[in-house]
């Protein structure tokens, strides 16, 4: 039994994974996701807590790309950039989706810091 939260095996990696997920959304899009991809390959034998957070962050990162880039691009193509209603839909959609993903990442980071597993709702791969 670990003595403190800091002693829980894999906690640091779990925190790093969730931080990279947030960094991908906020400050280093793409680069942080590549780091997450590297982490997923490099730490295949990491403790269960770390594996959980790395996998969750990685798949949620993939979904973020689809929801933020692909769906937005499709909406822009369908509506066209000169039609006002395209922007009335696309801007609130992008803000809501981006903010929701950040909040889910914050929940994940808080769980990782507390040494607890986390599953992203709706966009999750189920934990084994």
């Amino acid at each position: 039994m670990p003595l403190t939260v800091d002693d829980i095996p894999g906690r640091r990696l779990a925190v790093a994974a969730e931080t990279l997920f947030l960094a991908n959304l906020l400050v280093a899009p793409g680069i942080a996701f590549l780091a997450l991809l590297w982490m997923r390959r490099h730490y295949a034998d990491a403790p269960a807590l770390a594996r959980c957070h790395i996998d969750q962050a990685f798949f949620a990162g993939l979904w973020s790309g689809v929801l933020l880039l692909v769906v937005t691009a499709v909406l822009l193509m369908l509506g066209g950039v000169t039609w006002i209603w395209t922007w009335v839909i696309v801007i609130p959609y992008f803000i809501c989706m981006h903010a929701s993903l950040i909040l889910l990442g914050v929940l994940g980071l808080a769980r990782a810091q507390a040494g607890r597993p986390y599953t992203f709702p709706l966009i999750r791969p189920r934990r084994g």
């Binding site: 909040l103 914050v106 929940l107 980071l109 808080a110 810091q113 507390a114 607890r116």
Partner: peptide, 14 residues
């Protein structure tokens, strides 16, 4: 505000 959200959830989780 980001830190405050993280703070609130962190404390509740712990």
């Amino acid at each position: 505000f980001f830190a405050m959200t993280l703070f609130a959830f962190n404390m509740v989780n712990r």
